[in-house]
Nucleic acid binder design. Sequence first.
DNA 1: TATGTTATATAGACCAGTCGTCATAAAAAG
DNA 2: CTTTTTATGACGACTGGTCTATATAACATA
Lengths: 204, 204
Amino acid sequence: MSTKQTTPRRKRKGETTKSKLTAIAMDLFQRKGFVAVGLNELCQAGDLPKGSIYYHFPKGKNDIAIAVVNRAKNEIGKAILQAGAAADSKEAFIAALVQGFAQSLIQSEFEKGCPVSTLALELSAQEAEIAAAISDCYAYWQGLVAERLVRFGEQPEVAAQLAQFSFCALEGALILARTQKSLHPLEQVQQHLIQHLSFGVKDA
Amino acid sequence: MSTKQTTPRRKRKGETTKSKLTAIAMDLFQRKGFVAVGLNELCQAGDLPKGSIYYHFPKGKNDIAIAVVNRAKNEIGKAILQAGAAADSKEAFIAALVQGFAQSLIQSEFEKGCPVSTLALELSAQEAEIAAAISDCYAYWQGLVAERLVRFGEQPEVAAQLAQFSFCALEGALILARTQKSLHPLEQVQQHLIQHLSFGVKDA
DNA sequence: TATGTTATATAGACCAGTCGTCATAAAAAG
DNA sequence: CTTTTTATGACGACTGGTCTATATAACATA
């Protein structure tokens, strides 16, 4: 017992593999879309055997999509929290959010925008379960943003509206930015959102 | 010569078939995405034989995508012009635009958003030619909107910015609206865009 | 009206690739 | 050593887009 190096990882290997697969799927779905990425391609990209997928994701490809959505939910959620903690005004906060996506775009040569919008467009009409996960993800993000806006002095209801409006503009800008391979739409959105925030909003 | 009833249709049948195919493709791509729609499905939906496709679209599926983009460019272009002609203020103009997409959403039970955003996300990274067509399409739409905003008294440069910003917000709202099967995002965007327009924008 | 020639349209074969399954193999646990 | 968990890759049923060869329609000339 003492000499035998019982690898202290209990069942981490499984989690590692699953997590790795999810990460790769997120990257590829983002670039090429959900349907366009085959399971073979996924496995090859991660040096994993094909059979592994159906051990970790028994329901197949759809299961992967949901895992990707949840991973994106957490990752971007963290980014929102960090941006919020670092900013000292609502304007700086929004700017930081936009810049985060801008970074992702240029680092991927304008191939990676929002990790869930592709899934949203391809699957929301077909797979109710995935649509629900995506809807939940968006709501979560918007909640985080709204929460931070409240801390910057915004009324809760107005904050929620602004968060949603900002996300819409951001999502749209990401699409345009990808197709024309330019940060220009993002810059516009950033500038106008900040102006819109500064002017204040009358409650509905 | 005089008696022979030279059927007055010259090559109309061809155009009809091609146009029909394009229309069906636009509908299906919008709902399910580009990759998810097979050529078989396309033909069946239009009672057309499979072989016909490669007569009308020699380069295959990508050709169809481009045709769809151009059709959408024209259709929505017309809608923008109509909305512009009917509106008596920039606020009413934007509202009419948003309402047009809202109609499309509810009529399709939240399956049909923007006809080109699906293609944009699925293909812009892979197929440069299609990406160019989409980019051109967006630019055309934005130009039409900007033009009308100028007639409502906006400065040309500001009008162009506002048009782009509005389109970003609208595109994003369409995605959110589809996933949560609700017009709420569109309503928010409409309300905030109108506020943003009314307040005026300082030039960059 | 007949015939020749081009434009339009169709049918189906083709192979690569799809997802998902299953009978095993390896590893861990008891 | 037995049992349970974890992992594997070959296999099958099927669909994907593409292409070549053939058929139909439209028109021109006589």
